[in-house]
Amino acid sequence: MIPFSVLDLAPIIEGGDAALAFRNALDLARHAERLGFNRFWMAEHHSMPGIASAATAVALTHIGAGTSTIRIGAGGIMLPNHAPLTIAEQFGTLESLYPGRIDLGLGRAPGTDQAAAYALRRNLASDANQFPSDVAELMDYFQPRTPGGVRAIPGEGLRIPIWILGSSLFGARLAAMLGLPYAFASHFAPQLMMDAIQLYRESFRPSAELDRPYVMLGFNVFAAETDEDGEFLASSMQQAFVALRSGQPTKLRPPVEHYADGLPYAQRAMLDQVLACSAIGSPPSVAAAIETFVERTGADELMITSQIYDHEARLRSYAIAARSMARTA
Rank of each mutant, 00 (worst) to 15 (best):
W41E: 07
G166N: 13
A279R: 02
E228P: 03
E231F: 08
M237P: 05
R173M: 11
A128R: 06
S133E: 03
A240V: 13
I12W: 04
G92K: 03
D211M: 02
S207C: 12
L120R: 13
G100C: 13
N129E: 10
T112A: 08
D272W: 08
A279Y: 08
R121W: 07
S167Y: 12
A59N: 09
Y265T: 08
A208D: 09
A29N: 03
A55C: 15
A109F: 02
P144V: 06
Q198D: 05
A183E: 05
A289T: 02
A119Y: 13
F40G: 09
H187L: 02
I63L: 03
T328P: 03
A185Q: 09
T67E: 09
Y318T: 11
D113S: 04
A88L: 02
P255G: 01
A43R: 12
P84V: 06
D310E: 10
Y182E: 06
I102E: 13
S235A: 12
A185F: 07
F188Q: 07
G218V: 14
F170L: 09
S126R: 11
I87M: 00
A109R: 02
W163L: 10
P3N: 04
L97M: 09
R145P: 01
A52M: 09
Y214T: 01
M78D: 00
S47R: 14
Q239P: 12
R34C: 08
F219N: 10
P80G: 00
T86W: 01
N38S: 12
Y318I: 07
G15P: 00
R39K: 15
G247C: 07
I197C: 04
T146I: 14
A116P: 11
E231N: 05
E301M: 10
F293P: 11
Q267I: 07
M194W: 03
T69I: 04
V274F: 11
T67V: 08
M193P: 07
A319Y: 04
E257T: 10
R101D: 12
D27F: 02
M193K: 14
E95S: 11
L26N: 06
I2T: 03
R245M: 13
P147V: 15
G148M: 14
V256T: 06
D211H: 01
G157Y: 09
S235P: 11
Y309F: 13
G15F: 00
Y182P: 01
I51V: 15
V256K: 07
G298L: 11
A59T: 02
R245S: 14
I320N: 03
D140T: 06
G157E: 07
R296V: 02
R145W: 11
A175F: 05
D310L: 04
R205V: 14
A183N: 05
D300M: 10
D8E: 11
F37A: 15
G100Y: 09
F40P: 15
S324K: 02
P181Y: 10
E301F: 10
T112M: 11
Y118L: 15
E291Y: 01
L271K: 13
R101G: 01
A176M: 10
L9E: 12
G281P: 13
D134C: 03
F219T: 03
A288K: 06
Y182F: 15
I304N: 07
V274R: 04
R296A: 14
